[in-house]
Design a protein around this nucleic acid. Structure first.
Lengths: 199, 199
DNA sequence: CAATTTTGCTTAACACTGTTAAATCATTTA
DNA sequence: TAAATGATTTAACAGTGTTAAGCAAAATTG
């Protein structure tokens, strides 16, 4: 009765086919376009069949996210192994993290809940009275002794924004991750970048 | 024929009622739960009526986001006005930005496309071989001369993560915002934080 | 081998979603 | 009062996730 194993192997295959199909759809059409029926089309079954393998749609997303975590950890580990100096290791690891986010764009979105909502935020950033302009103005003022080019100001603004927005994002997704730690990271970061403006 | 104006006033009122209802639903049940029919229920009309005021659901989201931008800019401006010293202004502005994100959680999510996807990422962060652990290990190693407490390492890790994740988020939402600028901000940031580990 | 149970899979259906076209009702205009 | 315009609703379409019922083939049992 070795057919038990053959059947199990077929089942496993179906399972991975479902995950592969889901990822394929998302890569081609985005998360918004992912539906059970489309997955079913690709694996050449009907939609209810998927529920034999996954409790619901969220379970599929969860499993994909977990695959993402494994892949990310693997890449980070590989990056570390390319360097011996500790600080270079750290840099390589973060750069591989960065690369992962864009190579596996869709997985990263899923894993860290980002970039799924609507847009229309580019325009407003350029709006005359936007927070971006207001803050950039102060940065320019602080740095005025050095006659900074406009793109340096933009870079500094982005540095601030990134760390604050990043910290917010992490907190919004992973709600409540130690209020105290946050405040300290936040102030540390603001202070650190501000110091770099005048150094 | 002053009724023209009265009718216009009623129309305006309906428009804002729609936006208010949408925000109310989102605050109570989250973005996922927002539907045209639920909005209609609240404003005591039927769903198709909404299309007299907004082209589609996205148009509603867009308008809400724009309200958010205005509110954020206002708060940042107010924060600035509380300080005279430039660096303190900057700090106050970023702190008000921070506060806005949590006071107006839902708007922030909409404006910057964050925290809408699924979760399950807390567990994996704690997983033994996760990227988080791998990176934290290197941070600990770099700082080992100072016998750092575990929560300081965690804070440093979060600082790194925030700025990199923030930069990624901004790029994933606002796709392609000058590749060169990104790389410079990224390396600047990594270097800056790394320096703070050994200082 | 025949009868029965189990398994794999599909069809049909439910309650939703955004959105559009047609029908209805109220109000203003001629 | 009759016609026309505007406001509002009902009905419908195509799509969503999900569940229950049905069916046919395979496996198990007598």
């Amino acid at each position: 009765m070795g057919s038990k194993e053959r059947i199990q192997r077929l089942k496993d295959e179906n399972r991975t086919n479902i995950l592969d199909a889901a990822l394929q759809i998302v890569k081609e059409e985005g998360w918004q376009a992912l539906s059970m029926r489309k997955i079913a089309d690709i694996i050449e079954y009907t939609a209810p069949m998927i529920y034999e393998y996954f409790a619901n749609k969220d379970a599929i997303l969860n499993e994909l996210a977990n695959q993402g975590y494994l892949l990310l950890a693997k890449k980070v580990r590989q990056a570390k192994s390319t360097q011996t100096d500790l600080e270079k290791q750290l840099e390589a690891m973060w750069l591989s993290y960065w690369d992962f986010a864009f190579e596996e764009r869709e997985l990263y979105q899923l894993m860290f809940g980002v970039g799924t909502a609507c847009c229309g935020f580019e325009k407003t950033y350029k709006c005359a009275e936007s927070h971006g302009k207001l803050i950039s103005d102060v940065i320019r003022e602080i740095m005025k002794d050095k006659n900074p080019p406009e793109d340096l100001i933009c870079r500094k603004y982005f540095t601030y924004w990134s760390i604050i927005h990043g910290l917010i994002s992490i907190n919004l997704v992973n709600q409540g991750n130690g209020e105290n730690t946050n405040q300290e990271v936040l102030k540390d970061a603001i202070y650190g970048i501000t110091r770099s403006l005048t150094d």
